[in-house]
Structure formats: structure tokens, C-alpha cells
């Protein structure tokens, strides 16, 4: 029973990671890329829960909080990019100089 739960968690974690990775690698829209990043990290957290069980809860909560911060920072950068270029396409940002 316990092993099954671990395996299911790992499986879904892997699927989430793959989805997120595909999203990050293929999408051109900045918002979509951030969503992909979030999905990826959720997959990693799920795998973490699957291995650790009850003992990792505190770490997982902290990790989720950090995820929220990362998303907030990324979105604020995106807002500034939008103000600057009036576009959310990642290919328009291929130069660091604005």
C-alpha cells in the first residue's frame, strides 16, 4: 500500500515535471513560461512528498512559499517588460539592452 502511494506520487510528479518542462521549452509567451516553471516545481515538490511522507511537511510548506515568491518576482519583471516593450513575446527580449 505504502509503496503504491510513493509510486503514484512519483509518477504524477514526473508527469507534472514533463509538462512544465515542455511548456518552458516551447512556449513563447512569458506568462505561459512562468506557469510552466510553477508546474515543474510542483512536480518536484510532489516527488519530495512522495519520498518523505510526513516528515517533510515543513520543508514542503517552505518550498511552496518560496515558489509563490518566485512567481511574484517573475510576474513583476513581466509587468515591467510589458511596460517597456508592449509585448509578452520572449523572442523580443533576446538582447539584454532594452
Amino acid at each position: 500500500m505504502a509503496i503504491e502511494i510513493v509510486q503514484t506520487n512519483l509518477l504524477f510528479g514526473f508527469i507534472l515535471l514533463g509538462m512544465g518542462l515542455y511548456c518552458v521549452l516551447s512556449k513563447k509567451n512569458l506568462i505561459k513560461m512562468v506557469i510552466g516553471l510553477e508546474i515543474m516545481s510542483k512536480g518536484a515538490i510532489l516527488a519530495f512528498v512522495g519520498f518523505g511522507g510526513l516528515s517533510v511537511q515543513a520543508y514542503v510548506v517552505v518550498a511552496i512559499a518560496i515558489e509563490a515568491i518566485v512567481a511574484a518576482v517573475a510576474l513583476s519583471i513581466i509587468v515591467n517588460v510589458w511596460k517597456h516593450t508592449k509585448s509578452l513575446d520572449i523572442t523580443d527580449m533576446s538582447r539584454l539592452r532594452g
Binding site: L21, V24, L25, S26, K27, K28, M33, I90, T91, M93, S94, R95, L96
Partner: peptide, 13 residues
Amino acid sequence: QTGDANLNFIGIV
């Protein structure tokens, strides 16, 4: 160095 974020991600992976 294209500056394309998708390509950079592929490199990392």
C-alpha cells in the same frame, strides 16, 4: 548566443 530563452533552457536540460 541567440538570447532565445527556450534555446537556453534546452541547453540547461
